[in-house]
């Protein structure tokens, strides 16, 4: 395969990664890392560098559209970023200390648990109308959005901000360690612990993953993990895909988003466990 074939094929895959990543709030990394390592046999460290780029591309590409549609809870997102960025900075320094196999097993287990927790909440359709969470009330993290699938304004209250902050710290840590997976923890944290509607969780996660990834991107650049020939098609493809995916999210139901999210998470967790246990 020549460099031209590589760039074109990777750009096309990246468009798909951007659509999927922005729809479920995971970022393009969930597709990019396995594609680069399994299909193109690229070194895992370079794949993680490309994934960080794809995560930022998904976030910035999609968030521009989401924020306008008011689906992103900007306040909750910013508030939770306190924990995530701190986690990301600490994680970026642990990545060279931990063996890859351990990372795969650890990440696989984290994702398996996330998918289970998210699937369990599939029948919960109604958002909360009251909240006695002091932090959420103080910072006024509650919100509302217009749901195009249900054709009505949906307002919701936020609870469990302390649990949310704890999970977000871990999400930042995992994101920096593996280049992906911050959304995989962020969406369940907002959905299960904080009771945000699924579409809001996905959109807000999308908003946040870019900020979290930016906190560790500098480290990856200096360490030489951002290879231009990989980063260029990934960035361009994912940006295009994410813009398309952002439009899709408005039209589909929360239940669909949840199910797609769970399926993707189960696949990735099995894949990661396999790599860690039977390399």
């Amino acid at each position: 395969m020549t460099p031209l074939d590589f760039v074109i094929s990777l750009a096309l895959i990246s468009v798909a990664a951007g659509v999927l990543g922005s729809l479920i709030g995971l970022g393009g990394g969930v597709v990019i890392v396995p594609v680069l390592t399994l299909l193109y046999h690229v070194d895992i460290r370079l794949a993680i560098g490309a994934s960080i780029v794809s995560v930022i591309a998904t976030s910035s590409g999609a968030a521009a559209a989401y924020v306008r549609e008011r689906m992103t809870n900007l306040r909750a997102g910013m508030f939770l970023e306190i924990a995530t960025t701190t986690g990301a900075v600490s994680g970026a320094y642990l990545t060279t200390l931990l063996p890859t196999r351990f990372l795969f097993v650890f990440f696989g287990l984290v994702l398996a648990y996330s998918s289970f927790v998210t699937f369990r909440r599939r029948h919960v359709a109604q958002p909360l109308t009251v909240s006695n969470d002091r932090l959420a009330n103080y910072f006024n993290l509650h919100g509302s959005y217009y749901d195009y699938a249900e054709k009505r304004e949906i307002s919701y209250k936020v609870v469990g901000t302390k649990a949310g902050l704890g999970l977000m710290y871990v999400a930042g840590l995992v994101s920096a360690l593996l280049g992906i997976g911050s959304g995989a923890l962020k969406v369940p944290a907002m959905d299960s612990a904080m009771h945000l509607p699924m579409k809001v969780s996905s959109a807000t996660s999308n908003f946040m993953i870019g900020v979290t990834a930016a906190a560790s991107a500098g480290v990856y650049f200096i360490r030489g993990q951002i290879d231009p020939i990989i980063a260029a098609p990934v960035a361009a493809g994912v940006l295009l895909g994410a813009t398309l995916g952002a439009r899709v999210l408005g039209r589909v139901t929360s239940r669909t988003v949840r199910l797609v999210f769970v399926i993707v998470l189960v696949i990735i967790s099995l894949e990661m466990l396999q790599k860690g246990i039977f390399p």
């Binding site: 780029v53 930022i56 591309a57 976030s59 910035s60 968030a63 900007l74 910013m78 970023e81 870019g210 900020v211 990834a213 930016a214 991107a217 500098g218 650049f221 951002i226 231009p228 020939i229 980063a231 260029a232 960035a235």
Partner: peptide, 23 residues
């Protein structure tokens, strides 16, 4: 070209940071 691609990627990395600053 390599350097220019990396520059573009760094601009992309800066967008979330700029977004927080505007926030």
């Amino acid at each position: 070209g390599q350097g220019i691609v990396v520059l573009g990627v760094l601009i992309l990395i800066l967008t979330p940071i700029l977004r927080v600053a505007v926030g």
